[in-house]
Amino acid sequence: MKPGEVRVAGQVDKPYTVTLADLRALPQTSVSVEFTSAKGPQKHTYKGVLLHEVLKNAQPRFDASKKNGQLRGVAVATGGGDYRAVFAWAEIDPGFAKSQVILAVSEDDVPFEDTSGPRLVAPQDTKGGRYVSELNQLWGGVVDPVVDGGQH
């Protein structure tokens, strides 16, 4: 993978790679956020693409025979330094939640550098721990193998 590329993969039918340029060409969502970080209180406006849309394009494999099978889904974002954050599918699916988790292409109208990639932004969080910088991988899948004892 080249710097700035994000691999969208996992238990999906159509894995693909996306760049900041790709994301800038898609419909944008703007979110104003306030959160606490190691640097203290933060207040920013981010613009980007809904995480749900990016993952939906990879066509996650949810079990349609299960009631609300997508609610067994998770999204894992990996960034620089192997930093990871996990989201339940219901947190990012507008059919279930009002949150607008995005892959941000800019902060306070300053575009991110192409080599650093997008930043995952979780506006509903009061702490910035799930704000993933230098995003390089999104993994979508279901928890069934773990919960049902396939892995420990």
Score class of each variant (00 low, 15 high):
V6G: 06
R7M: 11
R7C: 06
V8N: 04
A9Y: 03
G10W: 05
Q11S: 13
Q11I: 04
Q11A: 12
V12H: 03
V12W: 02
D13Y: 07
K14Y: 08
K14W: 05
K14M: 08
P15T: 00
P15W: 00
P15N: 01
Y16C: 08
T17M: 07
L20W: 01
L20T: 08
D22M: 08
D22P: 03
L23N: 05
L23Y: 00
L23E: 04
R24K: 15
R24G: 08
R24N: 11
R24I: 09
L26R: 15
L26E: 15
L26G: 04
P27L: 12
Q28W: 10
Q28E: 12
T29F: 00
T29G: 03
S30M: 09
V31E: 09
S32D: 14
V33G: 06
E34C: 02
E34H: 06
F35E: 07
F35A: 12
T36N: 11
T36L: 13
S37N: 09
A38R: 13
A38I: 11
P41D: 10
P41C: 01
P41L: 14
H44K: 06
H44F: 13
T45Q: 04
T45V: 14
T45W: 01
K47L: 00
L51Y: 01
L51N: 03
K56M: 11
N57I: 01
N57Y: 01
N57T: 02
A58D: 04
Q59E: 15
Q59M: 09
P60K: 09
P60D: 02
P60T: 01
F62M: 08
D63E: 14
S65K: 15
K66I: 15
K66H: 10
K67S: 11
N68F: 11
Q70G: 06
Q70P: 02
Q70E: 14
Q70D: 13
L71P: 00
R72W: 13
G73N: 11
V74M: 13
G79I: 12
G81R: 03
D82N: 15
D82K: 13
A85I: 05
V86L: 15
F87Y: 15
A88F: 09
E91R: 01
I92R: 08
D93P: 01
D93V: 10
G95P: 02
A97N: 15
A97V: 07
K98E: 14
K98W: 06
V101H: 12
L103G: 02
A104H: 10
V105Q: 02
V105Y: 04
S106P: 02
D108Y: 05
D108N: 15
D108L: 08
D108K: 05
D109S: 11
V110M: 09
P111A: 01
P111D: 07
P111G: 01
T115K: 15
T115C: 03
S116Y: 08
G117R: 03
P118C: 12
